[in-house]
Design a protein around this nucleic acid. Structure first.
Lengths: 336, 336
DNA sequence: CAAAATTTTGGTAACGTTCCCATATAGGTT
DNA sequence: AACCTATATGGGAACGTTACCAAAATTTTG
C-alpha cells in the first residue's frame, strides 16, 4: 500500500538515490546496464514519481486556475476543453471555480486559487471593473492572469483573447436587414460586461446607418439566463412594441426569448426572426435552430492556455491581445 | 516577487521556524504576545503558506480526480457543483478529465490522474466493464474510487451513488399510460451502460403488465447525443412504426428526437408525447418543456464527495451504495 | 530561596526528488 | 608503470513545513 519511492529503489538495487534519479531523468552520466536495471526495478516494484516533491523543489504547483461565471451552459465547457488540450499534456492541472455572475464570489475564488498556489489564472470575468484592484494585486504577486471572452478595462496590462464583438454584431444586423427585417429588437446583455456594450454599439451603428434605429427596440436585462431572455421577450410583447426580429446578446437569452414567443404561438422565423452570439450546441438543439455568430471556443481556450504558459515561462514577457475571427452561421431562425 | 516563507519570518523576527509554525497552526504552546508579533509580520510581509510542502510531508496531494464522459451538457456540471461544494472548503482541488464516451480515453485519463497523484477519484464511467481491471488496480494501489450515475458491475467493491433507474422508468411509463398513451416508443441508451438496461427493463415491465409491449417500439442507439436522438426518431418514422409517445433514455436523446419530429411538423404533445430522464436545464429550455425524471444532481455530487472523503480518511472503511430518490416532473411535452 | 512544575522556545529530522560536488573506477596515452 | 582523462557512482543540501525532543525561561510550590 505504501508508495514506492526512489529510496526504496536505491535500497533494493544497492545503489544511491542519485544514480536512480539519473536513470529516471535520462542523464547521460550513467552506465546503460545500470539504467536498464533501474528501469526494470521501476517496472517490477511499480514505482511512480511523486510530482509533489518536484513542485516543492521548483516552486511550482503545476496548477492553473480557471475562473468563470458558470459551467451550466456549454460555453465554458468548450473553452475548458481547449485549455485542457494544451495544458494536460504538459502535466498541468486545471482547477475550476464558478462565480455565479457574482463579483464577490469571483473575488473569493481568486483568493482561493492564490491560496492553492496556482501558477497562473485564466478568467472570464463577471463584472468589468469590480475586481480590477485584485487582478492587479494578483499579477503584482507574480501570478499571471489571462482574460478570455469578457475582458477588463484596458488600463490592466494582461493578455487577453476574445472576438470582435462590435463588428460581428454589425454583420449579424446586416444579415437581418438583408433578409427583409426592419424592426430589429436587441436583447442586451448586462451593462456590467464590456461585450454587452460592444455588441449593442454594433447593433446601433448599423440600424442608424439604415435609418431604422428606435431606442424602444433595445431591452435591458440584469443577467443572461434563459429567464432573462424570456422576460425580455415578454416585455416587448407586453409593451406592444412592434418587432419582426430579435438580436440577442447570447444564445441563452435568445432561447429564453424564443420559448416565450413560441408559447404565445408567434411563429419563428415567419413572424419573428432570431439571431445571437453562440459557438455551442445550444444553437442547434433548439427548434428552429438559431442563426448565430459562432465563436471558436475550443480554439479560444487553446490560445488562452498558450498565453498563460508564455507568462509562466517569463513573467516579464509582453502581454498580448488576441482577437479571434468568428463565423456567422445562418440557420432556420432567420431563414425561410 | 520571491515568495515569503516561514524562514523569512523567522529571520525577520529573530525567532525559530518552530515558533513561527506554532503561531500559524494555533498551537497552545506559544506566548500570546509572540503569536501576535508573528501574525502581524505575516500581514506585513504578505506571507502565504505553501500547501505543496504539506502535501509532500503528509503524502497527500489534496487533489481529487473527476472522470466523466463529457462536460458539454449540464448534467456533469451540476454534479461537479455538488462536489466542489463539499471539497473546496476543505482545501481539495478537483481535476477534471473528459473521456468522450471512449473507454480508451477513460483509461488514459485514469492513468493520468494517478500520475497526478490524486487522493481519490470520482467517476461516471463510459463503459460498464471495459476498464474494470484498471478500476480494481487503482483501488489496490490505495486510491479510492467512487462511482456516480453509471456504475460498474457489482463484483467491484467500491462506493457508488445513483438513482433507481428501473423504478423511476416504470413510474414514467405509468404516467404516459395514465395520460392515455398506448404506443410508447423507447429510445434506448447504449447497451454498454448499465442504466440503459435498467431503464429499458422498467419500460418493458410496465408495458408487458398492461399487455401493450411491442419490441418494434424499442430503438437501439450507439450513443446518447442529440444526433442519436434525431436518428432514432427518424428510424421510427421511416419504418412507419406507429407511436403516440416516446420515452427516451436521456434528455439529450429526447431533445434530438423532438427536433426531428418538429421538423416533420409532428405536434408535441398532441401527436407524440415525450418524456425522459434529466435533472438539468435542458428539460426546460426547449419548447415544449420536457416531462422528466429529475435526478438530484448537485446532491449526487455532494454525496459522491462525501463518500470519497470517507475512503480517504480510512481506506478500509466499508464501501457504500447510495440510491437517491428522483422526482417525476410533468411538463408540457406530455400534458395538454 | 531553592526546587519543582509549567510554559515557551530552539534544533532538527522528515517528506521525495534533483543537482552540484566529490570520489572511485575504467580506459587510454606516454 | 605512471599519469591523465573519461565515465560512473555516491554524498548531501535544498525546496517549505511540522512534529518531536531537548533546552531555556518563567511561574508555582514547599
Amino acid at each position: 500500500m505504501k508508495r514506492i519511492t526512489i529510496k526504496d529503489l536505491a535500497k533494493h538495487l544497492l545503489l544511491s538515490t542519485s544514480t536512480i534519479s539519473r536513470a529516471l531523468v535520462n542523464d547521460k552520466n550513467i552506465h546503460p546496464d545500470t539504467k536498464k536495471k533501474v528501469l526494470d526495478a521501476v517496472e517490477k516494484l511499480g514505482y511512480r514519481p511523486n510530482p509533489t516533491a518536484l513542485n516543492l523543489k521548483y516552486g511550482q504547483s503545476k496548477n492553473i486556475g480557471f475562473v468563470v461565471p458558470e459551467m451550466i451552459t456549454p460555453f465554458t465547457s468548450k473553452v475548458l476543453r481547449g485549455i485542457q488540450n494544451i495544458l494536460y499534456p504538459l502535466g498541468y492541472r486545471v482547477i475550476i471555480t464558478e462565480s455565479d455572475e457574482n463579483p464577490l464570489i469571483e473575488r473569493k475564488n481568486l483568493l482561493l486559487l492564490e491560496e492553492f498556489n496556482v501558477d497562473g489564472i485564466i478568467i472570464n470575468l463577471c463584472h468589468k471593473s469590480y475586481n480590477q484592484d485584485l487582478y492587479q494585486q494578483i499579477m503584482d504577486r507574480g501570478i499571471p492572469l489571462v482574460f478570455f471572452d469578457r475582458i477588463p478595462g484596458k488600463s490592466l496590462d494582461a493578455s487577453k483573447v476574445m472576438v470582435n464583438d462590435n463588428i460581428k454584431a454589425s454583420l449579424m444586423i446586416e444579415h437581418l436587414i438583408d433578409t427583409g427585417r426592419k424592426r430589429i429588437a436587441h436583447i442586451m446583455g448586462p451593462s456590467t460586461i464590456r461585450n454587452s456594450t460592444e455588441r449593442a454599439m454594433g447593433y446601433k451603428r448599423i440600424l442608424t446607418k439604415h435609418g431604422i434605429f428606435d431606442p424602444d427596440l433595445m431591452v435591458k436585462t440584469e443577467g443572461a439566463t434563459f429567464e432573462h431572455g424570456r422576460s425580455a421577450a415578454q416585455q416587448l410583447v407586453d409593451k406592444k412594441i412592434e418587432f419582426d426580429s430579435i438580436f440577442a446578446f447570447t444564445d441563452t437569452l435568445a432561447i429564453g426569448a424564443m420559448n416565450y414567443l413560441l408559447e404565445q404561438h408567434i411563429k419563428i422565423p415567419e413572424e419573428v426572426a432570431i439571431a445571437s452570439f453562440s459557438g455551442t450546441e445550444l444553437a442547434t438543439i433548439v427548434h428552429p435552430q438559431l442563426t448565430s455568430v459562432e465563436q471558436p471556443l475550443v480554439e479560444m481556450g487553446e490560445i488562452a492556455a498558450g498565453l498563460v504558459l508564455e507568462k509562466i515561462k517569463d513573467i516579464e514577457s509582453p502581454s498580448k491581445t488576441i482577437v479571434m475571427d468568428a463565423k456567422l452561421i445562418y440557420r432556420a431562425s432567420t431563414l425561410g
